[in-house]
């Protein structure tokens, strides 16, 4: 069961990474609410891949690698998970006050090489690489990839414990709390790569609701020396923010390319 899940996750990873440069498909999670009051709140979350935000019209996003961090740092359980034609969905019972981090993360190696004149694709880990990929593979390209997709929900007062980054791959470190975003106000975040400031990176900010307007209305911002960037939200709504990193210098064998991607869905409320 576990291997099957792992394989499905890597399959997605591979498709996503290979498709990335050519396709504008966006991966996302969409929570039903991010700011909640009351004694017994629940949220339901959709996960999908599509062009326009946030509409289910392409493929569901598999939930392998889903981790929910509760306000006390413990792991919370997603309930009623299901995958349909266009979207996956799950529920989350917010049984503790504070902020939850919902993350879909995947990492692994992808290889492309020629064998008997045919293009081969492989995915796995550094351990399985040596066993499964021929040592004399021709035109071998190996990508070490980490992808992380996040969203945040808060019951009552926003808290910080669940927001702590893992230190692996590309991650967002909030300066402004991600569940305290208001139209017309500026919010600041920091991007990290493996726990260190990710400077001079482009962050793309795209508002949802694309079906009902012509312009994408996206905002591009650059991170500073300390990895920080600020966004002043033009209006209330759900936003998709994303950044990608790649390089061929700091890679670890057997990879010859490193790719990391971070994406989050953030809700901005009206004043």
């Amino acid at each position: 069961m576990k291997t099957m899940f792992a394989r499905a996750g890597l399959a997605l990873l591979l498709t996503a990474a290979i498709a990335l440069p050519a396709s504008a498909h966006r991966t996302w999670m969409l929570p039903s609410a991010t700011v909640l009051s009351g004694d017994d709140p629940w949220v339901t979350v959709d996960a999908a891949v599509s062009n326009d935000l946030f509409y289910f019209d392409h493929v569901p996003l598999r939930l392998d690698g889903l981790t929910v961090t509760a306000p006390d740092g413990s792991e919370a359980k997603a309930e009623n998970a299901a995958t349909g034609k266009y979207r996956s969905t799950f529920d989350l019972h917010l049984d503790k006050p504070g902020t939850y981090k919902i993350a879909l993360a995947s990492s692994g190696l992808m290889a492309m090489y020629e064998e008997n004149g045919k293009m081969k694709r492989w995915r796995g880990t550094a351990e399985t690489f040596a066993k499964e990929v021929p040592a004399d593979a021709k035109n071998l390209r190996v990508i070490d990839s980490q992808r992380r997709l996040e969203t945040f929900v808060t019951s009552g007062k926003p808290s910080d414990t669940a927001l702590k980054p893992t230190g692996k791959g590309l991650e967002l470190v909030p300066v402004t709390h991600p569940n305290d975003l208001v139209a017309g106000e500026a919010a600041t975040f920091k991007l990290q790569l493996d726990g260190k400031p990710a400077s001079d990176m482009e962050v793309s900010v795209v508002p949802g609701g694309k079906r009902y307007r012509d312009d994408l209305k996206d905002i591009k911002v650059k991170t500073g020396k300390d990895g920080s960037f600020s966004v002043t939200w033009p209006e209330a709504g759900m936003y998709w923010i994303s950044a990608s990193y790649e390089d061929e210098k700091t890679v670890q064998k057997p990879a010859n390319k490193r790719m990391a991607n971070y994406t989050a869905t953030l809700e901005v409320l009206p004043q």
Partner: peptide, 12 residues
């Protein structure tokens, strides 16, 4: 069950 508190957040 104190359920009326569910909509307090609507007073944003």
């Amino acid at each position: 069950d104190n359920e009326g508190t569910k909509w307090l957040k609507d007073m944003r």
